[in-house]
Design a protein around this nucleic acid. Structure first.
Lengths: 182, 182
DNA sequence: ATACTCATGTAAGCTGTTACATGATTCT
DNA sequence: AGAATCATGTAACAGCTTACATGAGTAT
C-alpha cells in the first residue's frame, strides 16, 4: 500500500500517544483540522488498512463492557513516519477557499453587495482568529511539543493577518461610496 | 441539481468572458488555482450538466475543422451566480497543507532533520511567492477587474508572509545549535 | 518533420463525505 | 431520566484524479 498524507496523519497521532481511532479523530479536530482534516469514516478503515500492512499493531482494551481497540506503531510504521518527515518530495497542497472564490468574482455584483460580502468574510476570519486565541493557542501552549506550538502560532497569525487584510479592504471600499445618480 | 462551488467557478468564468471548456481550464490554472483548482475532466461534464439544467447555452463554433463549443450564461445561470455571491451561507473552506502537517509532527525527528524540513518548506514558499510576483500579479494588473486584482494581491501577500514566517523559524532553529555531546 | 497548443470528451478508480447502525458509560 | 460522551464500524454516494482516446492547427 502506498501511504497518503492521511495515513501519515494517523501514524503521527499514534506516535504522539493517541491510542484509539476515536482519540485520533478528537485530536485532529482540536489541532490539525485547519490544515488537514479527517472524518471517523476515514480513520477506522485507514487504521485497519495500516494494520493489515504491518504499520501498526492493535490490542483489545475494553473499558468495562465498552469495546475499545488501541493501536501502536510497529518499527515499520515508525520508520515510515520518519522517512516521510525527511523526504523532500514536494508536499501536496490544496486549498479550497470558497470565500476567496466569491471575492474573485465580486466584480459581477454591485459595489454595495460586494462590500457586504467582504464584511461577511471579515467576520468569518475574525471568528476563527478568536477561536485560535481562546482555544487553540492556550491548548498548544500546554504541550511541550515545540513544533506543535509553532504550527498553532502559524494558524493564529494567519487568521489574524487575514482578518486585518479584509478589514483594510473593507475600509477602502467604504471610503469610496459609489457615485449616486442625482 | 444543487450547484457546488465548482459549478459557480464555471459560471463565474463564463460571466467573465471565457467561452470554452478549454479556456475556462486555462484561466483557472492562471488565476484561481491557488484557492480553487479544477481539472478538464471536471470542467467538461460540469458544463454539460449545467446546460442540461438550463444554466448555460452552448453553440458550435468550430475554428476551421477543429470542433469548438462555446457556452454563454442563461438568465437563470447569471441569477444563480449573483445569488451565490450574495448568499451568506458560511463558505466552504478546506485546506490541505502537507507541509504544515509535516511541521506539526516534526518533534518526532532530530532537530537537524527538522531544520532541513523547515528549509525545504521555506524554499517552496519563496518559489510560489516569486511566481506571484513574476507572473500572477503582473497579469492581474492588466485586467480592469478590481476584485480579481485584490485576490491576486491576497495570494501574493500570503505567500510572502508565509516565506518570511518560515525564514524566521529557520533563523530561530539555527541559532540554537543542538547541544553536542562532548 | 516534429513538437506544441488547441480542443473535446470518456473510463476506471481513488478518496472522502454523510448518514446509518449500535451500544456502554458518565454527567446533570 | 435524559443528554452527552465514549467507542466502533458499514453503506451509499459525491467528487475528483489519472489515464486513455482522438484529432486539427501552428510554430520551429
Amino acid at each position: 500500500m502506498r501511504l497518503k498524507p492521511g495515513s501519515y496523519l494517523i501514524l503521527g497521532m499514534l506516535d504522539a500517544g493517541f491510542e484509539t481511532g476515536y482519540e485520533i479523530k478528537q485530536s485532529v479536530d482540536r489541532s490539525t483540522r485547519f490544515f488537514w482534516a479527517a472524518s471517523l469514516a476515514q480513520v477506522y478503515p485507514e487504521l485497519a488498512a495500516l494494520e493489515n500492512d504491518g504499520y501498526v499493531n492493535s490490542a483489545d482494551q475494553p473499558r468495562g463492557k465498552r469495546p475499545r481497540k488501541t493501536y501502536t506503531l510497529t518499527t515499520k510504521g515508525r520508520t515510515a513516519l520518519e522517512d516521510w518527515l525527511r523526504s523532500d518530495r514536494a508536499p501536496d497542497f490544496e486549498f479550497r477557499d470558497e470565500g476567496l472564490l466569491k471575492l474573485f468574482f465580486a466584480d459581477a455584483i454591485p459595489a454595495e453587495d460586494a462590500l457586504a460580502l467582504v464584511r461577511r468574510l471579515r467576520a468569518g476570519a475574525e471568528e476563527i482568529d478568536q477561536h485560535f486565541r481562546d482555544v487553540i493557542l492556550p491548548r498548544a501552549g500546554a504541550t511541550s511539543q515545540r513544533f506543535r506550538q509553532l504550527v498553532a502560532r502559524e494558524g493564529a497569525d494567519y487568521y489574524a493577518w487575514r482578518a486585518s487584510w479584509l478589514r483594510q479592504i473593507e475600509a477602502e471600499l467604504s471610503d469610496e461610496p459609489e457615485p449616486r445618480p442625482t
